[in-house]
Design a protein around this nucleic acid. Structure first.
Length: 704
DNA sequence: TTAGGGTTAG
């Protein structure tokens, strides 16, 4: 008894972590280590002061273990996310001879299940679930229920999760929240919100901070800013607005929905910030076309001694890619190496993407080859990397490698492949891919439909585009824009305008800047000047969309093509257009069509200043001179290009024969059937001349 | 002694 008093006294004196080890040595000195009651009490103190090693040592030294002691050590390992150790200990617990006092109880089971969830060990989890069902007390425990729901949700088995949930006649807020979170994390935000509504409206339960986090995440997933703002109001009313996780989830909501100002305000007013807050704000800028702000925020973060994690690096890399800032990208790469996360899947994928977008193909290839494991996402970055660098055919080759590597494609990958085919204009492959999409069920995704419409129209098969378009039961702004662009490419301007009107009148879809680009270019290709200007005006005033230099160049093209060169010039100067090279390039093209040498010279002068390394503009001017017979001017430009060391990317012709792609470029005789092809061409030329064909000499390339 | 939560890559 004397020693018990001593120990009680010591426990009371133990106010913080430092005195724990003193307490420990006192216990050892007094020979109380075998007293399991005290050991247990000491163990809980160790757990509290987070010294897992000491706690574990004590546990291992104790032969006489109560459930209380087991639970304490299991929970400690679980908190440290040591899932394997936790499960291993749990198995030890099961296999040691069980008396009534050391059997796993309703406190033990949720810990073991959580470890299964952490390892995504569905099988082991199901075995434990089987054991649970035999014990009424454990089976009806709400904590056990939540843990099971979490396990099934993490493994993507929401059906099983629902089965567990429905066994409880009166689920509490935690159990409801587990279901809501489960649906949200499995990409079913609508279901998550409907469960939330049932919980609040039907059951009259009040959500807590954790529930609200999942609800806000669901709103973000659905891009529903309005609903999210309602929840924000409620949060403030409930006094939860200082909860870091919850505020971070609002930050994410504003970031995802492009509400940069809301995000920034919230971020600046935040009572406390952590890495997640900084990462979210950086990603907000990176994903909303503000890469420079993202980079500067990252530097601020580092200055303030916050430690960026791999998620932060991924977001900054995205910003580097968007800004085309390969120097900064390399710096982040070095940082990732130093932090030892260079080869994390997400980091290396972001690096591959960044290098590809900055045209450093070799760097990207090197990294890709070194990646220890490759998933769909990184294959996707690699595939579109090639396509972005003008190597669409090679990107199809990568796709084939992916398949033979045993990686199953998903809808996003398929869209990339469709885009590559569209670039190459290969119809036969398009048809095959479409079949595959139908059989795999990817074709009901809206963005896949949009890509198909684009693909068919670029392969010259507008009928199929229309068929896909009309067959869709849901159409977003991208789908409509693709269809409008399709009509435009094929020269059906008024059909494009009709579709545009149908979109606005019958489906309440709001056109965006790209929709306008498509419709304006349709007008340009069909010579619908008046209609084009009307639509341009609507864009600016009714839809409040600020025209980009691309919009301006389409307008210049529209005027220029129809011969209104002066008006085009006037349009550029009068609108105080941000005169990017595109705009003047369009005008130079128009000068070429209408052979206006004088204006061409003036325009080219501006262009050579704006974009001095663009070989295409020199070629255009040289061709204009050539048509006019000004051969000395042609020669002058030719020398200029030589001096500057500019190279034209050679044009290529592609043809698809029996689903094999054949490519040809100027003065290229490398095709195995070159002789045969040349012979056939000569035959055709003779026949064409016999039919009265006169070649257009103007277009003979006096190439530089 | 328990529990459910927030940021990322194509």
């Amino acid at each position: 008894m004397k020693s018990k008093e001593l120990i009680t006294h010591l426990f009371e004196a133990c106010k913080d972590g430092r005195s724990v080890s003193q307490l420990h040595s006192q216990i050892l000195k007094n020979g109380l280590i075998s007293n399991s009651l005290f050991v247990t009490k000491l163990n809980s103190i160790y757990t509290k002061y987070s010294s897992l090693e000491l706690a574990r040592k004590l546990f291992d030294e104790t032969p006489d273990r109560t459930v209380y002691l087991w639970n304490s050590i299991l929970r400690s390992h679980c908190r440290e996310k040591q899932w394997e150790v936790t499960l291993h200990l749990f198995n030890n617990m099961l296999s040691t001879t069980s008396t009534m006092s050391d059997k796993p109880d309703n406190f033990t089971v949720p810990i073991a299940i959580k470890a299964c969830a952490g390892l995504l060990a569905l099988r082991t989890g199901k075995t434990i679930h089987g054991l649970v069902k035999k014990n009424d007390k454990i089976n009806s425990d709400m904590f056990v229920g939540s843990a099971l729901v979490e396990l099934y949700a993490k493994c993507g088995e929401m059906g099983d999760a629902l089965g567990v949930f429905e066994e409880f006649p009166e689920p509490d807020v935690v159990l409801w929240t587990s279901m809501i979170t489960g649906y949200q994390q499995n990409g079913n935000a609508e279901k998550a919100l409907s469960f939330f509504s049932r919980m609040v409206m039907d059951e009259g339960l009040t959500p807590d901070r954790v529930t609200l986090v999942s609800v806000v995440s669901s709103c973000a997933q659905l891009m529903n800013l309005g609903a999210g703002k309602c929840v924000h109001g409620f949060t403030i009313k409930m006094g939860f607005d200082t909860d870091l996780s919850l505020v971070n989830s609002f930050l994410n909501l504003y970031a995802k929905t492009g509400s940069i100002r809301n995000a920034r305000n919230l971020f600046e007013k935040m009572y406390e910030k952590d890495v997640i807050s900084w990462s979210s704000m950086i990603s907000c800028y990176a994903q909303n076309q503000k890469p420079d702000e993202a980079l500067s925020l990252f530097n601020q973060m580092v200055e303030k001694r916050y430690d960026p994690n791999s998620v932060t690096l991924v977001s900054v890399l995205q910003a580097c890619a968007a800004a085309g800032n390969v120097d900064e990208g390399r710096r982040i790469h070095e940082l990732a190496k130093r932090k030892g996360c260079e080869l994390d899947v997400s980091v290396s994928t972001a690096l591959v993407d960044m290098y590809m977008k900055c045209s450093c193909i070799e760097k990207a290839v090197d990294l890709f080859k070194r990646m220890p494991q490759k998933d769909v996402v990184c294959w996707g970055a690699f595939i579109s990397g090639y396509a972005q660098n003008g190597l669409a055919n090679e990107s199809l080759g990568i796709f084939r490698s992916m398949l033979s590597d045993g990686t199953r494609p998903d809808a996003v990958i398929m869209v990339k492949v469709l885009k590559a085919c569209a670039e190459l204009g290969i119809l036969h492959q398009a048809l095959c891919l479409h079949c595959y999409l139908v059989s795999s069920g990817f074709d009901d995704k809206v963005f896949v439909g949009a890509a198909l419409i684009d693909l068919y129209s670029k392969c010259g098969n507008l009928e199929n585009s229309i068929r896909v378009f009309e067959g869709m039961n849901q159409r977003d702004v991208v789908v409509w824009s693709s269809m409008i662009a399709g009509y435009g490419i094929h020269g059906f301007g008024s059909e494009a305008i009709r579709t545009f009107n149908r979109m606005i009148e019958s489906s309440r879809v709001i056109p965006n800047d790209i929709t306008f680009l498509s419709i304006l270019s349709a007008c340009s290709h069909t010579g619908l000047v008046e209609e084009g200007f009307k639509i341009f005006d609507e864009m600016v005033h009714k839809y409040q969309i600020e025209p980009t230099s691309e919009h301006y160049s389409v307008m210049v093209d529209l005027l220029g093509r129809t011969g209104k060169l002066d008006k085009a010039m006037e349009f550029i100067s009068q609108k105080q257009v941000p005169s990017g090279a595109h705009v003047w390039g369009a005008l130079l093209g128009a000068c070429r069509i209408h052979q206006n040498v004088e204006m061409a010279e003036a325009v080219a002068k501006k262009l050579f200043r704006l974009d001095p390394d663009h070989a295409g503009y020199y070629v255009l001017l040289s061709n204009i001179y050539a048509v006019d017979g000004k051969w000395d001017s042609v020669a002058k430009i030719r020398n200029l290009v030589k001096e500057k060391g500019l190279k034209r990317t050679p044009g290529q012709s592609l043809i698809e024969v029996k689903s094999r792609l054949h490519t040809f470029s100027a003065a290229d005789s490398s095709h195995p059937e070159f002789e045969c092809i040349s012979w056939l061409l000569r035959e055709l030329e003779v026949k064409m001349r016999e039919e009265g064909y006169v070649p257009d000499v103007d277009f003979m390339l006096h190439d530089v």
